[in-house]
Design a protein around this nucleic acid. Sequence first.
DNA 1: TCAGGTACTAACCTTTTTGTAAGTATGGAG
DNA 2: CTCCATACTTACAAAAAGGTTAGTACCTGA
Lengths: 111, 111
Amino acid sequence: MKKQTYSCGLDAAVDVVGGKWKALILWALHSGALRFGELSRNVSGISEKMLIQQLREMESYGLVHREVYHQVPPKVEYSLTEFGHSLNTALIPLGDWGELHMETIEALPRP
Amino acid sequence: MKKQTYSCGLDAAVDVVGGKWKALILWALHSGALRFGELSRNVSGISEKMLIQQLREMESYGLVHREVYHQVPPKVEYSLTEFGHSLNTALIPLGDWGELHMETIEALPRP
DNA sequence: TCAGGTACTAACCTTTTTGTAAGTATGGAG
DNA sequence: CTCCATACTTACAAAAAGGTTAGTACCTGA
């Protein structure tokens, strides 16, 4: 989130879901709530710091819900809100596109 | 483009269209070819450096086509390839989502 | 000969993002 | 007592992205 005004819907959406991890976290939560540790293992390559950072941000955006179970050892579950679900749905075609062109993409020249 | 392998289609797609500008440039080219200067005015807020940098990258990915007219003053037109079109199409739902929730997004808390 | 319009290019710097590694808090189990 | 699992937190560093400013090359027409 950097801007306050956007030139178009895509501009706004990219600002919300932008970055390396948010879309993947959303994706991982697609099929239901997950604990912090489960997410950590599910989203391959993410560090604990980035995960919590992104989760906090997405929570503040109203995309994910955080449920704390007062136990020891602690248990915290993250799940998608309605808003998060709607965004996830909007991302499906993009995911399909990536899937379809995966080989092409992997063969693309790197900087 | 940072990775060589992806955990899912969305992962790959985000890697291709990631960053602040690519989606917007794609969007701007939706309705047809544009010259460098036209793009510059069309994609609000972008600097010439970022524009050319992103265009070059997208050209190398096969998303946009660059057509040079040997004239003075110079004229260069950028347009979407088939690949670029397909990506643009996949971005439509995301754009719609952003449009639909624009007010909510603008009211989101900033860091 | 000199300004003008177009599409870049280059150097330098600042900001943002991401990564790494270590440390904290909790209460029950042994 | 000490260890364990879990969910963070902190401090620091590196890397990537983005921004600013000035400059180049080209022919044309005044």
